[in-house]
Design a protein around this nucleic acid. Structure first.
Length: 211
DNA sequence: GACCAGGTCCTTG
DNA sequence: CAAGGACATGGT
């Protein structure tokens, strides 16, 4: 919470940026980011990609189409992502929120970030990480995503704040550049997958990537 | 077969 | 509030 944590986070961000540079992350239009954000919950991205292709093949890759789609068909398309029944409900809930509260995805673009975030969090099945993913990657807002990986990485450096604290910490440290928000999150995931196996996280970032 | 994956919700203590 | 279980398929 103090300056010490800010410096550590700043250092991590700089190290990762220097190590990975600019990388492509989470392509897709706003609808597909919203869908992918739900599908990727506790699931590998490769499985999500497969499901997204399957949805697209059936013309179910938009909020509008999901709104009126047959739930069983959605379930079939996203089965490979696991939790497919509950995720189908969540997609339906998000599509319903979009329709009832805004009328279209384009209308959502006009909503201020905080209001949109509150609306998304009101949807059952959308928590902080999913909401921030949608805001950051789908609507290009300055809302940093804290996931399990990010939490694990900063913990290796002795930053033990909880997710809500981490979010504001990162948002204080990062430049006011939306692209930096996206890149930094991408770097966190990339690094964690490479070095932070659950078993031995002892080799922390400061060791693997010497500042 | 065991264990984990870019979470979230619900129930208990 | 913290902890534990449920949701489910696919890869190592």
């Amino acid at each position: 919470m103090s300056g010490s944590s800010s410096i550590k986070v700043h250092h991590i961000v700089r190290c990762l940026s220097g190590h990975y540079g600019e990388i492509a992350w989470w392509p897709g239009d706003t609808d597909e980011v919203m869908i992918g954000a739900i599908l990727t919950q506790q699931t590998r991205w490769e499985n999500v990609e497969h499901a997204l292709r399957e949805l697209k093949r059936r013309g179910l890759n938009t909020m509008l189409s999901l709104y009126s789609a047959d739930s069983h068909e959605i379930e079939e398309a996203i089965r490979c992502t696991g939790f497919f029944r509950i995720k189908t409900q969540r997609l339906k809930s998000l599509a319903t929120y979009m329709m009832k509260s805004h009328g279209s995805v384009d209308k959502m673009r006009q909503v201020p970030t905080e209001a949109l975030r509150a609306g998304l969090l009101g949807v059952k099945g959308i928590g902080e990480e999913t909401a921030d993913s949608i805001l950051c990657f789908g609507f290009l807002r300055d809302s940093f995503v804290i996931d399990a990986y990010t939490e694990r990485i900063v913990r290796c450096s002795g930053v033990n704040d909880k997710r809500q604290e981490l979010k504001s910490l990162f948002e204080r440290v990062l430049p006011r550049d939306q692209k930096a928000y996206r890149q930094t999150h991408a770097h966190m995931v990339e690094y964690a997958k490479e070095f932070c196996g659950k078993k031995r996280c002892s080799e922390c970032i400061l060791v693997n990537l010497k500042g």
